[in-house]
Design a protein around this nucleic acid. Sequence first.
DNA 1: CGTGGCCTACCGTCCGGTCGGTAGATTTAT
DNA 2: ATAAATCTACCGACCGGACGGTAGGCCACG
Lengths: 209, 209
Amino acid sequence: MPVTKMKATIRSVAIDLFYRKGYFATSISDIARGSGIQKASIYYHYVSKEELLFSILESTMDDLTDYVRENLNRVRDVEERLRVAVRSHVRFHLTRQRENFIANSELRGLSEPNYRAIVRMRDAYEGIFQDLIRQGIDDGVFAVVDVKILSYAILTLCTAGASWFKPEGRLSVDEIAAIYENFIVSGLKREDETISTLSRAASGGIFFP
Amino acid sequence: MPVTKMKATIRSVAIDLFYRKGYFATSISDIARGSGIQKASIYYHYVSKEELLFSILESTMDDLTDYVRENLNRVRDVEERLRVAVRSHVRFHLTRQRENFIANSELRGLSEPNYRAIVRMRDAYEGIFQDLIRQGIDDGVFAVVDVKILSYAILTLCTAGASWFKPEGRLSVDEIAAIYENFIVSGLKREDETISTLSRAASGGIFFP
DNA sequence: CGTGGCCTACCGTCCGGTCGGTAGATTTAT
DNA sequence: ATAAATCTACCGACCGGACGGTAGGCCACG
């Protein structure tokens, strides 16, 4: 069943408003006005405001996962695979900026079951990066690091771009992707002194009484 | 004039609820119930719901800035200064987790003037890190990088901890701070091939049609 | 002619905020 | 010293309005 024209319009108006004003601050009337129809007509296409939000989040997560996986299929070298994953992640987030921003700030609008569904998808997606980092460590390409923390760090980092990126701004999507890519890879590759620094910090030195 | 007991109670109940349910999903009645008081009495202490939010955000930003600046005063070496800044930032965000989470997710609840006030404070705070990075570049300690992007990246990275950190979890505040610190410093110190990687990505290679 | 796609009209609920009032502590005036 | 005045901290009742959602009707088009 094809998505009808109006259903798609409603969706894109909703994305725009959720992005600009937030989910809770956007009313169904706002969306209707933006779509050029009456409020009640929204409910012909979507059963509730939450379902509208959920469908946006779900398809965004789906598309993101597909996009990254597909690009990963073309590469074998583990460092290059991480680079590709980061690049894909950044590109996706910057080109579909508004949807991704919503996906990272409006989970609050979901009821328990829908919330869990999205979280499950996010976990699966994070798994891609965690596997990549683990693989890199096993192959001796990356330093031994805390995989979970670092995967969060990497994803947060790149995702954040979606909150300040402006297409007409100073830097292009590819330039930003390259900056992140290099920063992350060199952060992961160091053969550093994690332990010593850690114990120095944990020993309760001169700072932080 | 000292902050009265009840005013402080309301404040901390509000922080707890804003953190757990979000600003818009928290009603004044909720806060009143949590404070053991009637709804109307809230308005004796705060003129509006927004003022309550604003006062939380404002004092959090104040305290954060003071804390980081104070710790920075004790160090001169530029790399160590960045390490201290990162460490302070992380520590503050993880120990005052809920306030910081709110400060980074509920700016939407502010009207224009209040919003601008907080953004101004944030800009000033970011300036500390940007100056540090610039200084490091000038001194040849850090690689030449895009200061603005990298400062956003660093702050976002560390701030994100406030959204998943659990005090009773696997890692302590200091361990997490050390992980971030090392990751960031080694990300900044590389003498890398930003330009070549950039042009490779921008040249529209095999990926990303 | 029937049904997909939209409309008008309406409902119950909840929310931020206001109002008038009050018990009791504190300050001031005599 | 005490009575009057004022202030502090709170309460119960209420308001206008917005919101998500529903019921049922209308009408163009296959």
